[in-house]
């Protein structure tokens, strides 16, 4: 019977293999499709940036005054 450590190694190796296989498939996509993905990533990043920039201000105003920390 395999030890727990050996089983973990096998599982991790499988994960690494699957990940690199996925990356290779992504790399083989047509350039136009890749550009679409980049544009989507830009939109997500812009959304995250926007949310991160506004959050402290918005959340401070949303908390009723009596429940705001002193």
């Amino acid at each position: 019977m395999k030890s727990k450590a050996a089983a973990t190694d096998v599982m991790l190796a499988g994960k690494v293999r699957a990940k690199s296989e996925f990356r290779r498939k992504q790399a083989a996509m047509p350039f136009a499709r890749k550009v679409e993905v980049v544009v989507r990533l830009q939109k997500i990043a812009a959304g995250i940036g926007k949310a991160a920039g506004k959050k402290p201000v918005r959340s401070a105003w949303r908390i009723p005054a009596r429940r705001r920390p002193a």
Binding site: R23, Q26, A27, M29, F31, K34, V35, V38, L41, A45
Partner: peptide
């Protein structure tokens, strides 16, 4: 970045 995206998995570049 965009030049590299031609060859590899797409990543964030501006």
């Amino acid at each position: 970045g965009m030049g590299a995206v031609f060859y590899v998995e797409p990543f964030l570049t501006y």
